[in-house]
Computed example of a mutant assay.
Amino acid sequence: MNKTVLKTKELLDLFLESERLTLPEMVARLQMPKTSVYRMAQSLVALGFLQKQGDDYELGLSLLTFGTLVAERLDLRRVALPVMERLKEETKEAVNLVIRDGDEALYIEKVETSEPVRVYTKVGRRAPLYAGACPRILLAFMNEADRERYVEQVELVKMAKCTVTDKQVLRRLLEEGRNRGYTVSYSELENYSAAVAVPIFNHEGAAVAGLSVAGPEQRFSPDDIARIVPRLKQAAMAISRELGFRGQG
């Protein structure tokens, strides 16, 4: 590998922990000759990767441009679809991908089951965050202040026979979901339907989507849930890794 490129990367890496550095500070940390560090720093300033404020250097706007492009080009649906297709083959049930859009969950991708008896959910469907496993996993992994604000303000409307309409019950389900890393629902959005869902995390560790396996209630017994959850978590983690997540989930 090119030594100059490697040394330049080492210099930029210094700013992962420090917002600003002077030339003497960079020289001390890199253990390189002052003239070499100065030339690298000035070249990076000219390219926009560093900027100088008085005696201090800091990261430049060119890095923001590249970072934004990476984020924009990391299409969640494109990354998730092959994983969803494998999960459908493993579970034999429909797989849904859901994101938060304001106070609603938006279904943005689906892989349909090949079973003749199925739950019909189409891409573009919206659901309140409190109802159904996949919307509720998004609510469960919101930050605490936003989550409680939502619960306080929302009107819990009954949409199916088991829709949660008690806020204390909802709070308990949200806490359980965060603790065990998945949520389960039965007949909350549609009668006789069931789903189990887990979060998908981005490079910042934020839950940016929910991944669920859904189908008729009779195919989601406790034994079925125990079989599905490990596969579902593994699939969600695979997608999260593609989005830059480096935590443990």
Rank of each mutant, 00 (worst) to 15 (best):
E242T: 12
A194H: 07
L81R: 15
F66K: 03
R149I: 03
L243Y: 09
V119Q: 14
I99D: 02
F141W: 14
E144V: 02
R125F: 01
L243Q: 01
M159K: 08
V184I: 15
S62D: 05
N2I: 15
Y186I: 02
A238S: 11
L50Y: 12
R136Q: 01
A46I: 14
K9I: 06
R171H: 00
L189I: 05
L50M: 13
Q234D: 15
Q51K: 11
R136N: 01
N96G: 01
A197F: 04
R126N: 08
G60M: 14
E188C: 09
R180C: 01
L16H: 01
G249P: 08
R136S: 00
K92L: 10
E58F: 14
L97E: 07
E148G: 15
E242Q: 08
E190Q: 04
E10Y: 00
R178V: 07
G181T: 08
K52E: 14
A127E: 06
K110Y: 10
L81T: 15
D13Q: 02
D56C: 10
L173R: 06
P230D: 05
N179A: 05
P135L: 04
K110H: 12
L16S: 03
T8A: 12
S185G: 09
P216C: 14
A133M: 08
L173T: 01
E93W: 09
